[in-house]
Amino acid sequence: MVDAAEIEAGMRVLEPSAGAGALASEIRARHPDATLHLIELSPHAAGHVV
């Protein structure tokens, strides 16, 4: 999924329904120059976002 997003350096990335943040962790690892914004409405899941 990260490859399909075609994220480039300096891009702003929005991840709605971030869950525990697994996808966000992969995005950070592959694209450290991108700005990542996460949204998670579930208090349980939001407490586990890394």
Rank of each mutant, 00 (worst) to 15 (best):
M1E: 08
L23Y: 03
I7V: 15
E15S: 00
E8L: 15
M11L: 02
D3A: 11
A46C: 11
A4T: 06
I27E: 00
H44V: 15
H31Y: 11
G47D: 12
I7M: 03
E8V: 10
R12N: 09
H37W: 13
T35P: 00
I39Y: 12
A20T: 15
L36Q: 11
A46F: 14
S42C: 08
I7F: 13
H31Q: 08
A20S: 13
M1K: 01
G21T: 10
S25Y: 06
A9L: 05
E6F: 07
G19C: 04
H48K: 15
A18K: 04
H48Q: 14
D3M: 09
V50E: 14
I27H: 00
V2T: 08
R30W: 05
L38V: 13
V50R: 13
V13H: 00
P43D: 09
D3G: 07
P32F: 13
A9C: 08
V13N: 01
P16G: 07
L23M: 12
S42A: 14
V2P: 06
I27G: 00
H48R: 14
A18P: 10
H37K: 12
V13A: 00
I39F: 12
V2F: 05
E15P: 00
L14D: 03
V50Y: 03
A24S: 09
A5W: 05
M1P: 01
A18R: 06
E8W: 07
D33F: 03
I27K: 05
S17F: 15
A46M: 05
A4M: 11
S25G: 08
R28F: 02
E15M: 04
L14Y: 09
E6P: 02
R30L: 09
E40A: 11
A5H: 01
R12A: 10
S25N: 11
A5R: 01
I7D: 02
A5C: 14
L14N: 06
A22R: 14
D3K: 08
D33C: 02
P32Y: 03
A46G: 07
I39S: 14
V13P: 03
A9V: 00
S17P: 03
G10H: 02
D3I: 07
A22T: 09
A22V: 11
G47C: 06
V2E: 08
L38K: 07
P16C: 07
V2W: 04
A20W: 06
G10Y: 08
L41T: 13
G47A: 15
D33W: 00
V50D: 15
M1F: 08
V2R: 09
R28N: 03
A22I: 09
H31R: 01
